[in-house]
Design a protein around this nucleic acid. Structure first.
Lengths: 346, 346
DNA sequence: TCGAACGATACAACCGGTTGCACAAATACG
DNA sequence: CGTATTTGTGCAACCGGTTGTATCGTTCGA
């Protein structure tokens, strides 16, 4: 058994309340007493029992992080990096990170969250992959648990944090357009996911500002997984026209799309340019290196924790943070084959 | 506030001890009473306070999972998949997963673990990336906290679980040899990491069984990261002979090596074949698809939790589990350029 | 019919902290 | 010098469960 307040109190012939106050820096205890307590506590290697403290204070010093288990997160390095940074920051701030990977997408997920979002278990929660009308958010609101969402949420009373999806996507597509591309495919994420929607919006803005038509034949929904990107790309180049460039709403889908293109005998970037989104470190190492919109993933993780801690302390209103992202051109993009043609058309 | 035992007791004019016993299925409470308690508990949506229970029972129902923060884990999808499966299995078994990402490699890591490995906080721990004489293991032993290691540990009193590193590596290298390769480079992990050592041993066995010499010039230590694989490959093909194949001790290093080879103007697999280890899902989507030794990553995660739960319940001795792995040939491997030559030499 | 055995429940201590309040001793004040 | 105030500490309740033991009323056997 580890040492307790009572142990220290006994040795110094004090009461445990005094010891507790001494250690917490209560001004009512004498300086001399505090010093003796502190010294003995150090010598005996005293650390407070987190459970007992949690029971008494009703604060667990634990943050819940909900990462959807299937199907995306399994394959997306984005989450690992986010999670690592969040865990690091949480620990630095004296919090534990309680990881939950609720199964399923619909009702199952909501039910799972109902169990997890227990104020007796965690002080606050980080929610990922918000959907358009996310019942999990309603749930968290009704439970009264502080939370932060990774991704934009329309409800102004909700704190959220996100990379600048629309601007990033727009920059990427603008770049393609500047190179002369006019037929640019888009592989989106699941339709009701806000990150996907915002990135698609960036694509739409870039296209329309350039006066380019939106061609439904080369816009296809993926699911943020490699295989989803692969299938979507296949669907596009199957019966339809082959675009000269593809913007995928995340990196792993871009990799899936790349594979589909290769299998169709198309060279990258000679025949088709490919751009992703996220900036996972892997993107730099594939062939050809994948152009992508770099998100400050670790900063997102750290900031999510910081914002959450702010919310938990009850200070101020909800925070809405959009972190800048940066388009990173790499060898997966190049000018379209019919360069002269495209220039003429402008 | 949520409902407590006392609330239920008051409504039914019982004592909270009786309510507690009724809910825990103690045979001493009357069937009728049990039914009334159960019904009311359901109606009031009672769930026990995990903290209070933890304090009373001295079991937190929480498992700690230590994933080293830097530099590897950040970029290796292997860990995400492992972690997801472990989390899922833990939740299924009624445990929470407490994620810790201790900083640093040496003393820092040990000190960090000393804080984390607190029996008052977690019931058991999953340790990853064991080293040859890992002080963290000594520490866990001395604290008396049940734990399971992901990776082989020589100490027979330690429970561990691992993919069959040596056999997997050997299969992969055997395959290369069967294709006619004789000059096979190896990029290892950090020298004292058991997984790396075991994979290198598989390489060694395959080479020596085939009567091939071990050429120190084409054996280089990496650090299990992409950039490590990249640098190691550069170091090999710099002033030295260019091998006809490379076995990298994990997938992300294989990707880094691939990039270095490309930059040197070498084609894969025409000039150099590349094989990785782990079987991350990304490997299938790069160009060319990366041959790799597939580990049952999710099963490793699930089993780590199961074995740990077994250890925590105190039943039986330490478990040592080696899960089979499978070499998966893909387009990143092919026969060596000088095929006829190699055949002659056999 | 009486004491023993038994079944069902209540009481109370305990886990290890936090915290409101009481109380004693020391100091201030008039 | 007596009273009011400050200062430092202890007592005890509380957080919400678990669990050893006491107590109650009933039923049983002799």
């Amino acid at each position: 058994m580890s040492t307790t307040l009572q142990d220290i109190a006994d040795m110094l012939k004090l009461s445990k309340s005094t010891v507790s106050r001494a250690l917490s820096g209560d001004p009512r205890v004498a300086e001399d007493t505090r010093a003796r307590v502190a010294s003995l506590a150090r010598h005996m290697g005293y650390t407070p029992n987190p459970t007992a403290r949690a029971l008494a204070t009703r604060r667990t010093n634990t943050i819940g992080l909900a990462v959807p288990w299937a199907p995306r997160s399994l394959s997306d390095p984005f989450y690992l990096e986010f999670l690592g940074a969040a865990g690091d920051e949480a620990m630095r701030s004296g919090y534990s990170l309680f990881l939950s990977t609720p199964d399923g997408d619909g009702d199952g997920a909501v039910r799972a969250h109902a169990e997890l979002a227990d104020p007796r278990r965690i002080d606050g929660m980080i929610l990922t992959e918000p959907r358009a009308n996310d019942e999990r958010i309603t749930l968290l609101h009704s439970v009264g648990l502080p939370f932060v969402v990774l991704g934009v949420v329309p409800d102004p009373s909700v704190s959220w944090i996100s990379g600048d999806n629309t601007a990033g996507a727009r920059d990427a597509v603008d770049y393609l357009i500047a190179l002369g591309h006019t037929s640019i495919a888009c592989i989106t994420g699941p339709p009701d996911q806000t990150a996907s929607d915002a990135r698609f919006e960036g694509y739409r803005l870039a296209m329309s500002s350039a006066g380019l038509p939106m061609d439904r034949n080369i816009i296809e929904a993926g699911d943020f997984t490699q295989s989803g990107g692969y299938s979507a790309m296949h669907a596009i180049i199957g019966p339809r026209r082959i675009p000269s460039a593809v913007f995928a709403c995340n990196d792993v889908m871009a990799l899936g799309a790349t594979r589909a293109l290769r299998e169709a005998g198309l060279a990258i970037p000679a025949d088709v340019s490919v751009v992703g989104f996220d900036g996972i470190s892997m993107a730099e190492y594939v062939d050809p290196p994948l152009a992508t919109v770099k998100q400050p993933i670790q900063e997102l993780g750290r900031m999510a924790v910081q914002v959450l801690i702010g919310r938990m302390s009850g200070e101020g209103g909800p925070a809405h943070c959009i972190l800048p992202v940066q388009f990173q051109p790499r060898d997966s993009v190049g000018p379209p084959r019919l360069w002269a043609n495209a220039v003429d058309r402008r």
